Amino acid sequence: MYVGIVAQRDNEQAVSLAAELVGTLEADDLTTTLDTATAGALDRPGVDVNEMAECDLVVSIGGDGTFLYAARGAGSTPIMGINLGEVGFLNAIAPADAIEAVTAEVEQLRETGRARSREIPRLRASNGDWSLEPAINEIAFQGPQRGHGNGADFTVRVDDEVYTTGHADGVLVSTPTGSTAYNLSEGGPLVHPSIEAIVLTEMCPTDSMPSLAVDIDSTVSVSVSGAEEAFVVSDGRTRERIDPPATVTVSTAEVPVRIAGGSVDYFEALKKLE
């Protein structure tokens, strides 16, 4: 059995916990796989994070950013998040419980061949020529830069029906998980993780429309014009430059994120946003 470990970069507590976890698992005749940064901190061989999909379980140690990074390479492999961050909507396990929680999940895998996990959707943006890495939080459409006189013209359609059209700094297409992130900072609504929805929020539009939540199986298309260039960004990490006029489609990705280790206390985590 292979357990992948991704620790927050330059975080001594995360590296120390990763070292303890490696020792515990390898003493139990398990094989651990470390991403390059974690391996470097522990002076061990490592792999690119994209190889984590070959593991049976991936453990992310850090904040939500570390979880997002680990999820980039995990594919359908369940991810257990150890929360060292301030909010931690994706990380359910406290550091003090990490070793026990991981070893319990390993035993579950040994006995049944499956981890206990829940699924959350990812969103994929594509236009026929390219497809961005799937997003856990949001796909952001942005003009060349923000501020008065910049931005671009956007037309947003849901299943071929026009929702809004006009000038804005950008448009966000978010998952319920992402509703607590960029979407919230742009005035979008919080969406409980049990609600299967896609959230549409304009960024500083000239003529504002309220945010809209649509069914998770909807197809959203965003047409961009009125600018020399624009960008489509997945979870703030990977982006594609587009030359308007252009249309990009966003839909639910085929492979969801599988989160192991129980659920976050959502309303308790919300209090940390205040």
Rank of each mutant, 00 (worst) to 15 (best):
T112H: 14
F231V: 08
L132C: 07
M209L: 07
V191T: 01
A246C: 06
L34D: 03
M209E: 01
S225N: 11
T249G: 08
E111Y: 09
S211R: 10
T36L: 11
N127D: 15
R118K: 08
S60L: 12
T103D: 04
A27Y: 05
D207P: 00
E138F: 01
I82T: 06
V248P: 00
F267L: 09
V214R: 07
N83K: 07
A41G: 05
L200F: 05
D207C: 09
A37F: 09
G63E: 07
R146N: 00
P256T: 01
V224F: 11
E86C: 03
D129S: 09
Q108C: 08
I216R: 12
L172A: 03
I198S: 11
D64S: 14
E228T: 13
V59H: 04
S194F: 00
Q13P: 00
L190F: 08
E20R: 15
V15D: 12
G63F: 01
R258F: 02
Y266E: 06
A269H: 05
P193E: 08
M203Q: 07
R239T: 06
D43K: 15
P78F: 04
I139H: 04
P205L: 10
T247K: 05
R258P: 02
D28P: 02
S225R: 11
P205D: 07
T31S: 14
G170L: 11
V106D: 13
T249N: 03
V264T: 12
E51R: 15
D56M: 14
G170D: 10
V106Q: 14
V220F: 00
P244W: 01
A140W: 05
P210D: 01
S263Q: 11
D207Y: 12
A140L: 11
A152W: 02
L273T: 09
F154N: 03
V257T: 09
M80R: 09
S76M: 12
Q13A: 10
S174A: 15
N83G: 04
Q142I: 04
N137G: 12
L42S: 06
I93M: 10
T112R: 13
V58L: 12
N183V: 00
V255W: 03
E196A: 08
I120E: 11
V156Y: 03
A168P: 05
A269S: 13
N50H: 12
D235E: 04
G63Q: 08
S234T: 00
R9E: 10
G187L: 01
A104V: 05
V199R: 10
N91H: 08
T103S: 14
V3M: 13
E229Q: 14
Q142E: 12
A98K: 01
I5H: 10
E254G: 02
F267T: 07
M1Q: 13
E107T: 11
G75V: 11
G226W: 08
T31A: 13
D29L: 12
A115F: 04
V171Y: 02
D217C: 10
I82P: 01
R157C: 11
E100I: 06
I120M: 06
S126L: 05
D29M: 12
S76C: 06
V224S: 15
G166F: 11
S251F: 05
A115S: 15
D97P: 03
